[in-house]
Design a protein around this nucleic acid. Sequence first.
DNA 1: ATGGCTTACAAAGTAAGA
Length: 275
Amino acid sequence: MSPIQTFKVATWNINSVRLRIDQVRRFLKDHQPDLLCLQETKCPDDKFPTKAFKEIGYGNIALHGQRGYHGVATVSRVPFLDTQKYDFCKKGDARHVAVTLCPSGRQDITIHNFYVPAGGDEPNPNINEKFSHKIEFLEELAGWFACGPAANGERQILVGDLNVAPLENDVWSHRQLLKVVSHTPLEVEKLQAALDAGNWTDVVRAHVPPEEKLFTWWSYRSRDWRQSNRGRRLDHIWATQPLAQNSVGIDVIFDARDWIKPSDHVPVLAEFEIN
DNA sequence: ATGGCTTACAAAGTAAGA
């Protein structure tokens, strides 16, 4: 009986929320998501620009920040029924925050916001502690969702900077990046195992065929990111079946890479019909 | 040539990103 409504979620690695607060506000005004997940906020919770979000209607805020590095934040127009943070790998890093809300007044939705470790330069877990941390994080992710939300038929969304570009067309050159952290076979296998363990759907690739190149990150070092286009798809939106089968579209905001002093990542959006 | 850039930090050079 209740009318169909939509729920629009966005994810963006902002690379300092304080430095780019005006860009975040511009994005929210232009694209009007119900909820935005930010990563690499690089901001302790007591310094988070809460007021700037409240002024434009995103006053429901869940923070898991730390000084200097990492940090995630979820800002929303819809009130939260619950929030949680989990310290993956027990390192004290701020890499996860989850919120539960009920935009339709019927069935809850839980949204997980992740910042997976980058993994350093050397793709060998035996000699690179950062890479082994990344692998362990992905293994813990798989275990955390195994027999969880999907098995129970729950409505859950997982977004964030997962720091892995899994498909051949998620990087500018599959052949040249096979030994580069973010696209090595071991990481791709671990990310796929996490996707399978939670019975998640990669919502973005459900709308963009795997034959088509799609990136969300371009290095600051290229002289002209558009012209060289050496990007990677590191930012993801996953959903459990009840939502995935009602996803109506995705959007990648490429223009944000051209804004003044941009993040090296661009926002990714997905819209779902809910009842 | 993927690292040539960019960020935070009890502020000059370090660590980190990917």
